[in-house]
């Protein structure tokens, strides 16, 4: 669906404006985004790329050079384990968040429009507080052993904090795709004999799949770099990519190693993303 959006953007950009002057105007319109992209995406990535090949002195200073030391260090299985644990947490977070977000979105979909506004407000209001404060509060909630679970400093605790934090990012795209389904479609399906399960599998799911793909992306990618939640809720029991990076840059002062890790994750994401698009597209075409 990212590809679809991109196509849409391209089509809009191609809209007939005329020639000459309009071409310049179009360039002018796109300029702010171009500049933003250059300064906040391209430039930092370039800096990281250079840094990842740089040399770290004994004192932890970074000297520009061209060496593979950082990448060679990453071949150590220890780092692979960090990456694997991170992927595991991110995947678990994505699955659980989507499982929670889908029925929640349906609930919102079935709300009257006036009530919907309240529900959206309720899930967005916590975001007006600082992330740090929210996580610390969540730790306090876990300390109370809610529902008799002792999850503090444990994997389920980290996961529940992540789900709590990422839920709105999944609810909003799923709800956006659900909102477009006129309720008469569901009534028609029921009238024609579809039970609850069939309404879900034959009507709702096929029509919201693109929203779920976007939601999965919105949850999975940022949770790869999550470091505050594993630190504060996990109590350092789980060493994830985010913590590792924070460590390399701020504590161990091994910037080349941190930069190389980021390069690997970014390249990995860039490889996986089009595959993800391809799956969504193939599924879309199949229907």
């Amino acid at each position: 669906m990212v590809r679809k959006l991109r196509q849409q953007f391209r089509d809009q950009a191609r809209a007939p404006l005329g020639a000459g002057v309009e071409k310049f105007q179009r360039a002018l319109l796109l300029a702010p985004f171009g500049i933003w992209f250059l300064f906040f995406i391209v430039a930092p990535m370039a800096v990281l790329l250079i840094m990842s090949f740089s040399h770290r002195t004994e004192l932890g200073e970074t000297q520009i050079a061209f060496e593979w030391t950082a990448y060679r260090t990453l071949l150590n299985p220890l780092y692979g384990k960090v990456l694997f644990t991170t992927l595991l947490f991110a995947a678990a977070n994505t699955v659980v968040t989507l499982l929670a977000a889908y029925p929640f979105s349906y609930f919102m979909y079935r709300c009257k429009p006036s009530a919907r506004l309240w529900v959206i407000t309720l899930i967005l209001v916590p975001f007006w507080t600082s992330f740090l404060v929210r996580i610390l509060a969540f730790v306090d909630v876990l300390r109370l052993h809610p529902f008799g679970f002792d999850w503090i400093y444990k994997a389920p605790g980290i996961l529940s904090a992540m789900v709590y934090n990422y839920l709105p990012f999944a609810v909003l795209p799923i709800f956006a795709s659900m909102e477009k389904i006129h309720y008469s479609l569901i009534e028609a399906a029921k009238d024609l004999g579809a039970g609850r399960v069939q309404v879900l599998t034959r009507i709702l799911w096929p029509l919201t799949r693109s929203g779920v793909s976007v939601a999965a992306l919105f949850v999975f990618v940022p949770s790869l770099g999550e470091f505050l939640i594993p630190e504060l809720v996990g109590g350092g029991n789980y060493f994830l990519l985010g913590s590792f990076l924070q460590n390399q840059f701020l504590t161990a002062r091994n910037w080349p190693l941190g930069a190389a890790t980021i390069m690997i994750v970014v390249i990995g994401t860039l490889i996986v993303l089009p595959l993800f698009n391809g799956v969504a597209k193939a599924k879309g075409a199949a229907t």
Binding site: H182, A189, D191, A194, P206, L207, T287
Partner: peptide, 28 residues
């Protein structure tokens, strides 16, 4: 509704947009 011998044609027809015409017709 499904157990009544009564079917409804909805105002905006409520066809399933992800299904072909044939699959819409045979949905029931």
């Amino acid at each position: 509704s499904q157990y009544r011998d009564i079917r409804t044609v909805f105002q905006r027809y409520a066809l399933f947009p992800h299904l072909s015409v044939f699959e819409n017709v045979v949905f029931g």
